[in-house]
Simulated scan of single mutants.
Amino acid sequence: MKLKDAIEEWLDELDIEKASKETIRAYTNSLKVFSKYMCDSTKLDNIKAIHIKEFAKFNKERGLKIKTQNGHISIISVLYTYLVDEVIVSKNLGYSVKLVNGNDKKEIEVLPKIKLKH
């Protein structure tokens, strides 16, 4: 099965399960980026964990916000959970990439209550 076909099947399943339009839109947009990155016609059997890791690196280099980077990887994991459940693939490759930790953000200054009153 090709990646593009697997994505279409899963999105159809989400629609049948009555997922919200916003959820389907977000998943569609995220998976469109992944599908184009992998070339739409890539067979699922040819996708390896390294490809998911390279996709995560690609998103980081594009300057995407941490939340967006994590969103892409999470959605790939959910897609692969479906594919495993349907016995289309045997392993969830989305688990091969750890989500980005946002601890490198700027520290927020906490003001004492006295300053807040002024």
Rank of each mutant, 00 (worst) to 15 (best):
L93A: 02
A6S: 01
K53G: 03
D12S: 14
K43T: 05
E17T: 05
V87D: 15
A19N: 05
I88D: 05
E109H: 15
G71T: 02
T81L: 07
I66Q: 10
S41C: 09
E8N: 13
Y95G: 14
D104R: 14
I73H: 00
L93E: 00
K98G: 04
S90L: 14
K113I: 09
C39Y: 12
N101F: 12
D45T: 15
M38D: 03
K21P: 08
V33M: 10
K57E: 11
Y80T: 00
D12N: 12
K53E: 09
F34S: 03
L64T: 01
N92E: 02
D104A: 14
T28Y: 08
D85P: 08
V78A: 11
E22Q: 14
T81D: 13
H51R: 12
L44T: 01
I114D: 15
V84D: 11
K32Y: 06
D5K: 08
T23Q: 00
W10S: 00
S96H: 01
T81H: 13
H72V: 01
K105F: 06
K2C: 02
M38C: 12
T28S: 13
S35C: 10
R25N: 07
S77R: 15
I66P: 05
G71K: 09
G102M: 06
T81M: 06
Q69N: 14
K18Q: 08
L31T: 03
N92Q: 04
Y27P: 01
I76T: 00
K36H: 13
D15F: 13
G102K: 07
S96G: 04
T23V: 01
E54N: 13
A56S: 13
A6P: 00
T28L: 07
I47Y: 03
K57V: 08
G63Y: 10
I50M: 14
L3E: 00
K43I: 07
N46H: 14
N101D: 15
P112H: 10
L83A: 00
M38V: 07
Y80Q: 02
Q69F: 07
Y37L: 05
K91L: 12
D15P: 09
S41M: 09
V110I: 14
D104N: 15
E22G: 13
I7S: 03
K67P: 08
N70L: 04
K117N: 11
N103D: 13
E86Y: 07
K98T: 01
K43W: 06
K18T: 03
K113P: 08
E8V: 08
H72P: 03
E9L: 09
S20E: 00
L93G: 01
Y82H: 10
E22P: 10
Y95W: 11
T42V: 12
T42I: 10
K65Q: 09
S30I: 03
V78T: 07
K43C: 09
N101Q: 12
I7V: 04
A49V: 04
T42Y: 07
F55P: 05
H51F: 05
K43F: 12
P112A: 05
